[in-house]
Design a protein around this nucleic acid. Structure first.
Lengths: 216, 216
DNA sequence: CGATGTTCCTACTCCTAGGTAGGAACTTTC
DNA sequence: GAAAGTTCCTACCTAGGAGTAGGAACATCG
């Protein structure tokens, strides 16, 4: 009906997208999805919006991901990997001892430095909390739970070594506290942009926690 | 998708709802909305679902609240009041001194007891975080921000009294930490149902924080 | 160049959820 | 009991987003 030529409804003023195929297109779609997700949140991340941001039309997105859930889970996977990679990087520059404060400081520094190095990844993984619809939220929850489980074991060992009482009840609490404090610190740096470096904040908070945890 | 086979259009098998009028109906709608919100989350809280839960049809809901945002904001207001009332109640049973640990313990006990006493209110106010669409999320954010502001002043005073350095940079961090630790504790009690009483947990955590904050 | 297979785009369908119009049922008042 | 005023319900409209069918543009290979 309308002779293509100028531009039409779907695309703004763009011409036809490059001939890449699903394999090579997929990472680009994820990039676009990340961008949209970060600046428009879960609700604003429609398939149409992602397609637009990728300079492509919806069916192309659907050739790369079967549906919206798969897209978002794939995004979550990728950004989680990125974040873990960044954390690993930072870990290598921090030697770990067996004293609680040092372990906390090193781990927290790595975590915060990773978050600051890949802020968008951080937002996807941690700022999705409840908002995300069912599937994504559930995955985030499981991921966090796994981290807290490991943290709890670590805390328990330190408590045993320190000769504390009532460990079975206290360790889970302390692990949760450390987790939420870590997330809170990351939010201060990434979202609120407090004027601290990752190492500074980690050191300060680790000392605070370690002092509180050590027996009087 | 919906197997509306045996069911009929609007109401299931219910008769006509009582003749109450907007004024008297409004609180009932809020009750229904709370119930739906708590068990189905933000996304699941459609006007239809609220109407069903209230034993009423959509237009009745719209006579009580102009639109969905107004409904949810009204709900947020009401539950926030409930929560504050519960917190005030608990405060009366805890005398406050000028020593940091005692102040923290008293405040935290009140907060946790309030959360446990009105768990559904707590969920609406604190568990809505990012999920809620724009308006509600924004209100929650502002409410939290106000609380952190007050907390920061309190922390600053204590730091001044303690003769600490770099207060302008540290006070905001500590205030944020206390806030997120408080929320984390409330989640342990209300959502995860850890086997602690409010007072126990508050005392334990307050000691931990106070020790960490006091100068060596 | 023409045939073949891939990749992309236009143009739909379907469905959900917000929101509304207008009439039916009830209550109150005389 | 009938008129008047409320309150409620049925039935609809609409926007927007998930997901799809089928054809147009491209690339590649002969």
């Amino acid at each position: 009906m309308v002779p293509l030529g100028a531009k039409r409804p779907g695309r703004g003023g763009r011409s036809r997208a490059a001939h890449l195929g699903p394999e090579r297109r997929r990472p680009l779609i994820l990039d676009a999805a990340l961008e949209v997700y970060v600046e428009r949140g879960y609700k604003g991340t429609s398939m149409q919006a992602v397609a637009d941001a990728a300079g492509v039309t919806k069916p192309v997105v659907y050739e790369c991901f079967r549906n919206k859930d798969e897209l978002l889970l794939a995004l979550l996977d990728r950004e989680e990997q990125r974040l873990l990679a960044a954390v690993s990087d930072s870990f290598l520059t921090n030697s770990v001892s067996d004293n609680l404060e040092a372990v906390l400081a090193a781990g927290l520094t790595a975590f915060l430095a990773g978050a600051r190095q890949a802020p968008n990844s951080w937002r996807v993984v941690f700022d999705s909390g409840s908002g995300s619809g069912s599937v994504v939220a559930e995955r985030v929850r499981r991921g966090r739970e796994g981290a807290v489980d490991r943290l709890r074991e670590l805390v328990r060992q330190h408590m045993v070594a320190g000769g504390l009482d009532d460990i079975e009840r206290k360790a889970p609490v302390v692990a949760e506290l450390i987790a939420s404090v870590s997330e809170s610190c990351a939010r201060m740096l990434v979202v609120e942009r407090y004027p601290w470096t990752a190492a500074e904040l980690a050191t300060y908070v680790a000392r605070l926690l370690a002092r509180g945890l050590n027996p009087v």
